[in-house]
């Protein structure tokens, strides 16, 4: 089977065949929105276990919302999301918290606790969820900090860290209890190329060496196509295309091509829809 055959360009039907292997997350016909604004209308996708899956889409396409739905911070209006065999929307708060203990989430800007030192930030989940002896906590935290290369910064406070360092500390914090799945919410946003490379290397390392299922939500298409095993493109509330990176690159849809290559011209218009230019400039009626 060629990679091109694996990819299924958008045909108008939201049902896309799940990638091979066991699944960590199944999203079935999800509808979600805020008030009158529709975010998802019939979203279907599957996240394979033990792989890196990237969800790509333009800003405002609801990628971060998707993570919030998967972690149970928001509830779907219709449809269902199964994480690790449990339907997130139907869980009690207690059961949801039990499920979340197997999850790690890396937030866009790290979301470190500003009143705690780097060490205490990483130690936070350990102290909250276990009753380990202080010496053990110390070892565990320093091990995780070493893994992200910031053991030396353990006594600093979040305000003293650069963006890339903060995100690496946040990563150490989210993996300190060895989660089964990691969610990365725009992990590369606002980073310089060096920091970006470090984060990408860590994501790949965590997946390859520890087998942590990883779901990355991003609009940095070229970087994601480098590291992901499977990609979804979402826009306008549904999946527009799916497949391994190679297939995505060769995808035929003009929308996908514009998104992947980052061109200003294509089906996504540069101009926000409005009245004809001449009407606005010379029209008798002034716009409200």
């Amino acid at each position: 089977m060629t990679t091109a055959a694996l990819a299924r360009p958008w045909t108008g039907t939201p049902d896309l065949e799940p990638p091979p292997g066991p699944n960590a997350i199944r999203v079935r016909d999800v509808h979600f929105g805020y008030g009158s604004r529709v975010v998802f209308s019939g979203l279907n996708l599957t996240v394979p276990e033990g792989r890196i899956t990237a969800i790509l889409g333009p800003s405002g396409s609801g990628k971060s919302t998707l993570i919030e739905l998967m972690t149970g911070q928001k509830r779907v209006l219709r449809g269902e999301i199964e994480v690790g065999g449990e339907e997130v929307g139907a869980l009690s708060r207690r059961a949801l918290f039990r499920l979340r203990r197997r999850m790690g989430v890396l937030f866009q800007d790290g979301a470190l606790f500003t009143d705690l030192s780097v060490f205490e930030n990483v130690a936070f989940p350990v102290r909250e969820h276990t009753r380990l002896a202080e010496a053990l906590v110390h070892h565990l935290v320093l091990m995780k900090l070493e893994a992200v290369g910031l053991r030396g910064a353990h006594s600093l406070y979040p305000s003293q860290l650069s963006g890339g360092m903060a995100r690496r500390v946040a990563l150490a914090r989210s993996i300190v209890l060895d989660p089964w799945i990691m969610f990365y919410d725009e992990p590369l946003v606002g980073l310089d190329p060096i920091a970006m490379g470090m984060i990408l290397r860590l994501i790949v390392h965590l997946n390859r060496s520890l087998g942590i299922t990883s779901l990355i939500v991003s609009h940095d298409v070229s970087e994601m196509l480098e590291v992901a095993d499977w990609c979804y493109l979402i826009a306008e509330g549904r999946v527009q295309g799916a497949g391994p990176p190679a297939a995505i690159r060769e995808m035929g849809s003009p929308w996908v091509r514009q998104f992947v290559s980052g061109g200003p011209e294509g089906p996504v218009p540069f101009h926000y829809p409005g009245r004809p230019y001449a009407d606005d400039l010379f029209g008798a009626v002034r716009p409200a």
């Binding site: 911070q73 039990r98 979340r100 203990r101 989430v105 606790f113 936070f124 989940p125 909250e128």
Partner: peptide, 14 residues
């Protein structure tokens, strides 16, 4: 605003 509350929430800490 800095999503510390969300971070705690997804760490299963109320």
């Amino acid at each position: 605003a800095t999503r510390q509350i969300d971070a705690m929430e997804v760490m299963a800490v109320d």
